[in-house]
């Protein structure tokens, strides 16, 4: 069972949680690769971040990787991220590629 990816389909859901530091991020990256392999099925990709406490650059890279590989037609959401987490995305300008929401509104 995947640790982060909960569902792959038209609306694919990824639950980011806990501490995603450099040692754990490769797991997330591998799951992203599996998810992208099925990108033709996907119309929306939602990262739920309400239980994410910390994310290192490696974790952010996994999100960026997914966004870049999944194709321009797929909308990517970041949902429920705390201000601290959101800051990391904003500082590096990555938030511009994502739809930021408090609750997933579809």
């Amino acid at each position: 069972m995947a640790k982060y990816v909960q569902e792959i389909g038209e609306v694919s859901k990824v639950k980011l949680h806990g501490h995603i530091d450099a040692s754990i991020a490769p797991e997330l990256m591998n799951e992203m690769k599996d998810l992208i392999a099925r990108k033709d099925e996907i119309k929306k990709l939602v990262f739920f971040a309400d239980e994410l406490e910390y994310v290192a650059s490696a974790g952010i890279r996994a999100v960026v990787f997914a966004k870049q590989k999944i194709g321009a037609n797929v909308q990517v959401y970041l949902v429920g991220a705390s201000d601290v987490i959101l800051d990391v995305f904003k500082l590096t300008g990555i938030d511009k590629f994502l739809t930021i929401q408090d609750k997933f509104e579809g």
């Binding site: 290192a56 650059s57 952010i60 800051d87 990391v88 500082l91 590096t92």
Partner: peptide, 8 residues
Amino acid sequence: AASGKYSM
């Protein structure tokens, strides 16, 4: 960089 602590 405000993100310097993340090496970003």
